[in-house]
Design a protein around this nucleic acid. Structure first.
Length: 530
DNA sequence: TGAAACCGAAACAGTAGTCA
DNA sequence: TGACTACTGTTTCGGTTTCA
């Protein structure tokens, strides 16, 4: 059955009220409103300005259709009661009418009719407890009611985006431009909601879980990854399908067109294998992930499905999960050649000081080709080559200060036997052989500035990195401006986001003054000043 | 023969739910 | 409120197999 906006607000409210942390106690409308915003952040996109849940509709729905006046003494079948008093708002401190709601979880213990606002004092209002509790209003993946609310929100948001898009096109065609049409009152769209939602085809891709940080982490490699995970997965499935074409592997391989990056037949075959398994897993994920079906079970099923087509090179879901880890960040498999993957490695310092040394090493390798090993070369370096270089250095005056002499002598005294992790002896890191420690001390790393700071410096300004907290720290309602720009971006067709030039043009459009007008930015900044 | 790929096991991190 | 458990996913280690 289709849901109207008001009934969706009600349903969202009920799932939160059922939480023992918030049931059986009076909470003011502002607290409920904040809880709903925290638990269902996407619900705000069903409102008029995308900035927040429509609190007017929420309060009206609760008081008019769902609850009973606690002062009346009447029993409410839903177990929901309301009361209101004129006093200072617990959040703003300003005098006015403040609504309170109470959910009786037992349906048998209705609250005592309150005589003053002190009887319904909200324990969470503007308190540390409220801040702490808000973080606990998180998604419960196993709750069917919450999943239903999330699907409905997704459907409503999709419909609203579609309507806004059509309105924008109409306004542009009429010559008015901008998003003025978005300000139109849509309170009376309940019937439209009913009609549209009736036609809305819900599937697993409408699931709220796809908007979660878990999805971002699992499929894009970062909790804060930008972009629609479903859209990106669909695009990547398309790219992985191309692997089966001639030279199709290039569409999913890092540095595929670099010099010397050509793969041999086996490497091409291996990329193809990875693509087949991952493509199947992604397709299954779009069908099932999030509805109590985890990523590992999807990988197991993908292996079984691929097996039906005669492929059996992978048997463990871990392997497919590893393929995903390598692929997910930018939709490319790392090049199998180490030097191409990481770029040309830096020349060792000792080779810069002694350019004849690599020539001698090559000669040694050729002479001992029949029984050459790394250990053999290591012994040769330590016992013959480096002592010879030290002797050469000693022929010069002041050789003890010569950097080349110090380097060569160091290799004799402390032959390299490095550990990639921090090697510890008696609980203390052995700094000389711990590569991680040595890398951390390199000035290149220690003095590296972020890209943002580098660009800022180039433009003649300084960038001060502050602590990461709420976006409102930035002031001027910048989060709302970004939210509107992002909302507009998400409504654009995929074709506008493909190719670099199109993407840049779209980003310019999203951040243009046509979309973010002065009036709109000023409106956004108002809440930040209060 | 060494490197890469595969894979099992264990440790660890983060989150949610339960209970006293 | 804190301890505990369950679940999911990641990282690391180490053994085996396969490939160049």
């Amino acid at each position: 059955m289709a849901l109207t906006k008001k009934s969706l607000y009600m349903l969202a409210w009920c799932t939160i009220a059922a939480n023992p942390l918030f049931s059986d106690k009076w909470l003011c409308a502002e607290t409920w409103y904040r809880l709903i915003n925290a638990r269902y952040p996407t619900l705000r996109y069903t409102g008029q300005d995308n900035a927040s849940v429509d609190r007017g509709q929420l309060t009206t729905a609760l008081t008019t259709y769902y609850s009973s006046d606690a002062a009346s003494g009447l029993e409410n079948p839903n177990g929901v009661y309301y009361a209101w008093f004129k006093h200072d708002d617990p959040y703003t401190g300003k005098p006015g009418r403040v609504h309170y709601f109470y959910y009786d979880s037992t349906k048998e213990n209705k609250p005592t009719p309150p005589r003053s606002w002190r009887d319904v004092a909200d324990p969470y209002a503007k308190s540390v407890q409220m801040v702490e509790r808000r973080v606990q209003v998180v998604r419960n993946r196993n709750n069917a009611e919450e999943a239903k609310v999330e699907r409905s929100i997704r459907a409503l948001v999709d419909k609203k985006n579609k309507d806004d898009n059509e309105r924008l096109i109409k306004a542009r065609n009429a010559g008015s431009g901008g998003l003025d049409g978005m300000d139109e009152d849509d309170d009376d769209d309940s019937n439209e909601d009913d009609k549209s939602n009736g036609e809305e085809k819900l599937n697993n891709q409408n699931h709220m879980g796809w908007l979660s940080s878990e999805a971002g982490m699992l499929f894009l490699g970062s909790k804060d990854a930008d972009g629609d995970v479903v859209d990106i997965l669909q695009e990547r499935i398309g790219n992985l399908t191309k692997v089966l074409q001639v030279n199709g592997y290039k569409s999913v391989l890092q540095s595929a067109d670099d010099d010397g990056a050509e793969l041999n037949d086996h490497q091409k075959w291996h990329i193809g294998q990875k693509a087949i398994y991952l493509r199947e897993a992604y397709k299954l994920a779009l069908e099932k992930w999030g509805n109590q079906v985890n990523w590992m079970s999807i990988c197991i099923e993908a292996i079984d499905r691929v097996k039906e087509f005669g492929y059996s090179s992978v048997t463990s879901p871990r392997t497919v999960m590893d393929y995903n880890k390598a692929f997910r960040k930018d939709g490319l498999f790392p090049h199998p050649c180490y030097t191409i993957r990481l770029g040309k490695p830096p020349t060792p310092q000792v080779f810069e000081h002694f350019p004849q040394l690599p020539v001698r090493i090559k000669d040694f390798m050729l002479k001992n080709q029949a029984h050459f090993s790394v250990e053999l070369l290591r012994t040769e370096l330590q016992q013959d080559m480096f002592p010879a270089l030290v002797d050469e250095c000693k022929k010069s005056d002041g050789y003890e200060q010569d950097e080349g002499y110090v380097l060569a002598q160091h290799y004799i005294d402390k032959p390299p036997s490095y550990s990639t992790v921090e090697k510890k002896v008696d609980g203390k890191v052995v700094e000389d052989i711990s590569l991680r420690h040595m890398m951390g001390k390199c000035t290149d790393f220690a003095e590296e500035v972020s890209q943002l700071e580098a660009i800022g410096k180039k433009l003649g300004c300084s960038v001060i990195i502050t602590t990461k907290y709420h976006a409102e720290y930035a002031g001027e309602g910048i989060e709302y401006s970004w939210g509107l720009a992002k909302c507009f971006y998400r409504r654009q067709p995929l074709s506008k986001k493909k190719k670099k030039a199109n993407f840049f043009a779209l980003v310019d459009q999203c951040l243009s003054q046509e979309l973010l007008t002065k009036d709109m930015v000023r409106k956004f900044s108002k809440p930040c000043l209060s």
